[in-house]
Write a protein that binds this DNA or RNA. Structure first.
Length: 491
RNA sequence: GAGCCGUUAGCUCAGUAGGUAGAGCAGCUGCCUUUUAAGCAGCGGGUCGUAGGUUCGAUCCCUACACGGCUCACCA
């Protein structure tokens, strides 16, 4: 706390004025008032004396002698208040003198225009609604310290306008996504965040414990297996927007908890899903940003449809200039990886090696939206195989700006095949692969009742927001990104 | 988990080839009744991230640790 502020707090109390007012009614936001009167004639305003009450946080005070201009800020923007000794009571003037930037004030008066034509409220009454006991960051440079910005997001939001814009955009994007799916007759559902078996993805889960039931629970790594149970139950078209938790490293693209939308659609296939994805991202960008060409990290990205659909091998051939014949069998794939200094593990099969080559040599080059299709079965334990090629699955991933944005596939609905794949995962788990799937017997039972032909997809909301707000780090689009605790802070 | 970089006033940043620190904004005191980075004059403010070490003396050099950023690894 700042001494001079505490002194002013004491002063206010000595006047018999509370520094924390219970309520103050403001019928209109600053923006609403501006929209209505900004174009009004100066003299007309003076004659009409439109009276309003407004409130907000004091961002700056420009004082001279017996008058002052105060800029306050509410959620819709800034508004200027003019205050003149003699036009408010002596006591109110004393309250004004005890005002610091950062305080919330409430004031009533009439509208007028200054010499420079700025719509301003001429104060006839004045109150401090909430006294602020901490100094705001500096007014020109704002708050730059990244650590403080994330830890004290409230401060960041007060002084860095762009930060607020990102989260306004985030909210609008999610709202539009909901509308997109609702319009198409999808049902929004919520499935367990705490799961006895963390399935639906390959990732290390967080573990917790339920005391009363004395059982281990995992924070979910994906909602996938529950959503498919719902399709089995006849819901046919479902989606869920919620958090997933993965106990892995943090980076500019990874936060331990992140938001995904997953949706499932019976009687659709993965090509339908790709088309829907093109439509979704175009719709969201057009409606939220008003455009479908966006700048990201000094690249211009066009969302114009259709987006290329390349198989893994085609992409490697095109972007890494490696003949796909060199990927056709295990030995040549292994040799190709070694020729390109890509480290491979002894346990990997051909599919995993080809995927690794793709990730090392191609992924970052996929700046324009591109679907990579037909992934090896080896790395796709929940996807359906192609009818004419059982080692390849009908699966795609979407890449934009060099990173993975979405992952979708035709859902494996053969319970016997699924059981075999789970068994392989269990073997891998026993061999030390912490990310391998566990056997989920209830899910197999559900599949035995019959899952209609279904395609499903997951799309990373945070990454989509990064793309649409030109944010280089995922922390810029998450209000409270994960941080180590502060060991101490100044009082 | 590894490497590199950073941490100085409320904020943004300088700085000391080792002699306990400065600027602007913010704050305080004056003057100023239409300013908007208001202006003018003056004043106060720092265990220089933490703990050790070297040294007559450390904010500066060394070591460890903490937190953060970036890159890599893991991954979405």
């Amino acid at each position: 706390m700042e001494k001079h502020r505490v002194q002013k707090l004491e002063q206010l109390k000595s006047y018999g004025v509370t520094p924390y007012v219970n309520t103050f009614k403001i019928p209109f936001s600053s923006k609403e008032i501006k929209e209505k009167y900004s174009d009004s004639d100066k003299n007309e305003l003076l004659n009409a004396k439109y009276r309003f009450s407004i409130a907000g946080r004091v961002m700056s005070i420009r004082e001279f002698g017996k008058a002052a201009f105060i800029t306050i800020k509410d959620r819709t923007g800034d508004f200027q208040v003019y205050l003149k000794k003699g036009e408010i009571s002596e006591e109110e003037y004393k309250v004004f003198k005890a005002t610091d930037t950062g305080d919330f004030i409430g004031t009533s008066g009439f509208l007028f225009k200054t010499k420079t034509g700025e719509l301003t409220l001429f104060a006839e009454s004045y109150k401090i609604l909430t006294k602020s006991l901490r100094d705001l960051p500096e007014k020109w440079h704002g708050l730059k310290d990244v650590e403080k910005r994330y830890r004290q997001r409230y401060t960041d939001l007060i002084v860095n306008e762009h930060v607020k814009d990102i989260f306004v955009t985030r909210s609008a994007v999610i709202k539009r996504i909901r509308e997109f799916f609702n319009k198409r007759d999808f049902l929004e559902v919520e499935t367990p965040m705490m799961q006895p078996i963390a399935g639906g993805a390959t990732a290390k889960p967080f573990v917790t414990h339920h005391n009363a039931l004395d059982m281990k629970l995992y924070l979910r790594i994906a909602p996938e297996l529950y959503l498919k149970r719902l399709v089995i139950g006849g819901l046919e078209k479902v989606y869920e927007i919620n958090r997933n938790f993965r106990n892995e490293g943090v980076s500019t693209r990874h936060n331990p908890e992140f938001t995904m939308i997953e949706w499932y659609m019976a009687y659709a296939d993965y090509h339908d899903m790709m088309s829907l994805t093109e439509e979704l991202i175009n719709d969201v960008s057009a409606n939220v940003l008003g455009k479908t060409t966006i700048e990201y990290n000094n690249e211009t990205i066009s969302l114009k449809r259709p987006w290329p659909r390349l198989t893994l091998e085609e992409a490697i051939e095109k972007y890494a200039h490696i003949d796909r014949k060199k990927l056709s069998d295990f030995e040549s794939a292994k040799q190709t990886a070694q020729e390109n200094s890509i480290k491979i593990d002894e346990s990997w099969g051909k599919g995993k090696i080809v995927l690794e080559i793709f990730e090392e040599l191609v992924e970052e080059k996929l700046i324009q939206p591109t679907f990579i299709i037909d992934y090896p079965k080896e790395v796709s334990p929940l996807s359906k195989s192609k009818a004419d090629d059982p080692e390849t699955t009908e699966r795609f991933e979407l890449f934009i700006a060099g990173f993975e944005m979405a992952n979708g596939f035709n859902e494996l609905n053969d319970p016997i095949d699924q059981k075999e794949r789970f068994e392989k995962q269990v073997l891998a788990k026993d061999a030390g692969d912490e990310e391998a799937h566990l056997m989920d017997k209830d899910f197999l039972r559900a599949l035995e009742y019959g899952l209609p032909p279904t395609a499903g997809e997951g799309l990373g909301i945070d990454r989509l927001i990064m793309l649409l707000t030109n944010s280089k780090s995922i922390r810029e689009v998450i209000l409270f990104p994960h941080m180590r605790p502060e060991d101490d802070y100044d009082e």
